[in-house]
Design a binder for these strands. Structure first.
Lengths: 340, 340
DNA sequence: TTGTATGCGTTATCAA
DNA sequence: TTGATAACGCATACAA
């Protein structure tokens, strides 16, 4: 509205009766300025409401921003906002050694259904000179990220490793977590254990692998009719439960591979007479308060984001070693639902 | 690592054998360039891997970014990430009339415990020339936002109105929602109804107001020993439940004012023999699947964020009217827990 | 301690 | 259709 042109450093200098350079010195606390001029410049800056133009500054200093780019998959899933929360926590952590760092920001965008936009979004973020990038890979090829890392932009993949290139990555122990979860059910004597979850390129595959490994180790043959990595939301668990129940030899236990599957399964327990034992991948708010309380494999998006941000901060702090892989533990939280 | 200097427009122009301006024309699709030169420039840009320096461009064009700044309170609360999700959805909505808009981003930061940082963060975002600002007010005075709005930066407050200035705001119907929720309990014959929730400047006050209004309207005198806007997390509900139960005349129903209170209350129901009727403010994943299913006042952070972003987009599209207040409905979702 | 001249990478102006 | 030149706002090098 008001066209009141944003005041520049030159305006401040004029008003203070000094040269632009002196004003710059004052505002950047370089010292070597007479106290009275310091006062005049400061006063002028306040009166004018001067705020430095970050673009001009960064253009001149060839610096990068204090911003970390975060590219997630569909933002509709609270899991990814949990990751963002973890990044927030890490970059604002006062315990890190680089105290007095400037305010850091998160520049976020999600690919939303169209994973082909992933490279575009990354490119746009690089144009905006983000100081680092966190990417949840959704495409089948992240080789374009390698070029970035070589250009000196720290890149970390989250939740899944990058395909086609070797960059830092933070992933959860999907395989091991699923395996331990299913083992818990096997230890209760179950031999017919269903797998229910949503389809996903990497993580679901890993969890299915863990599920199969646990069964194989126990000498149980995998029945593919029990494996349903096909749900879209909690509601879609209902029909799957029907099909499972209609089998000659229905499962006596269920491993739910994500929160949606778990919520859906709980709904089935309520509305149907079916009461299978249950272990869930990913903890959720209600798990400790429903009846029975739900035993889960803890999969913490916040921790994922936090560790990823820490890898980034390490690189920004000077680490130049080879790409690192961090695997976040997925410990079992034993509650009641795995008991027969 | 590799110091491979980022190629500039001049580099592209050199390689294509044209002037920088011509290269610029081509890259910005300004037209009026001979086809063969267009091809040469495009080829050179690709070969060099040229990406424009956004800072230089914005400096020159005096433009603002395509970024919306979002300042939230403590990012530890999933409610705020829900708001961010809503903003994401709105700014990426292909149904809006401004199709073909450039990739828009969210620049986010949270004040984390220290609400005094709110103005600093806003200032830093303005220095970064965000095209608009969404703020969840945490301080007691947002008059500094008024100046911003006058400078032409669209500002929208989310969840709570700004104090000390009149800017766009999107808030939930906290008062009405709480009132309707409590009325539901009164209709079931309850007259001793407790209020449990976390302290908060604005929203909790509104919800308590609704709670009181409902009681007053029913001729029930408010007993302050039943009002506990003091929890910090779900676990802190336990001691409060003890105190409520130790009263001569314990409540027969509870209104939980936020998700933490609701989860905490569910835990109390499990671990104690106390089974009060219950209505909760804010829906949560497990509400439809616990026993009994929880009747809630629906408070949708995603909708809050979405509407806020829409106000912003309206202003960016040219709306220059007076500040608007949007109140998001908080409809009751009747399930079972309100029944005695 | 202070100021002048120059350049960062891009676009705008205007003349050719 | 093209290109030389200036300017955006700031910081750096170098002088004074």
């Amino acid at each position: 509205m008001s066209a009141a042109k944003t005041p520049t450093l030159a305006d401040v200098a004029d008003r203070a009766g000094v040269s632009p350079k002196t004003a710059s010195r004052v505002l950047n606390h370089e010292g070597n300025v007479r106290p009275d001029k310091v006062a005049r410049v400061l006063a002028a800056a306040t009166e004018l409401g001067f705020t430095p133009n970050e673009f001009a500054r960064l253009l001149r200093t060839r610096g990068s921003t204090t911003t970390i780019g975060v590219v997630t998959a569909d933002i509709g899933d609270p899991f990814w906002t949990g990751v963002i929360r973890g990044v927030e926590l890490a970059i604002g952590d006062p315990d890190r050694d680089d105290v007095g760092h400037p305010q850091r920001f998160i520049l976020s965008a999600s690919t939303r259904e169209r994973s082909d936009r992933e490279p575009e979004i990354v490119a746009a973020m690089v144009d905006r000179r983000v100081m680092a990038l966190l990417v949840v890979p959704t495409t089948t090829d992240q080789s374009y990220l390698g070029a970035l890392a070589e250009r000196g932009v720290p890149v970390v993949c989250v939740d899944r490793p990058a395909a086609g290139t070797d960059v830092d990555a933070v992933v959860a122990d999907d395989d091991g977590g699923a395996r331990r979860g299913v083992e818990l059910l096997i230890a209760q004597g179950h031999r017919r254990i269903a797998f229910v979850g949503r389809p996903s390129v990497y993580t679901t595959a890993e969890r299915i692998a863990g599920y199969r490994a646990a069964l194989r180790a126990a000498g149980i043959v995998v029945d593919d009719r029990l494996v349903h990595p096909t749900i879209t939301d909690a509601a879609s668990v209902g029909p799957i439960a029907e099909r499972l129940l209609s089998l000659d030899d229905p499962p006596t236990a269920v491993f739910t591979a994500d929160v949606a599957a778990s919520i859906g399964m709980l709904a089935c327990r309520r509305t149907r007479s079916w009461r299978p034992a249950m272990v869930a991948f990913s903890d959720f708010d209600a798990a400790p308060v429903v009846e029975p309380t739900v035993t889960v494999v803890h999969n913490d998006p916040v921790e994922l984001g936090r560790r990823a941000a820490e890898l980034v901060l390490d690189r920004l702090a000077g680490y130049t070693g080879p790409p690192r892989r961090v695997r976040i533990d997925t410990p079992i939280i034993e509650r009641e639902s795995h008991l027969a």
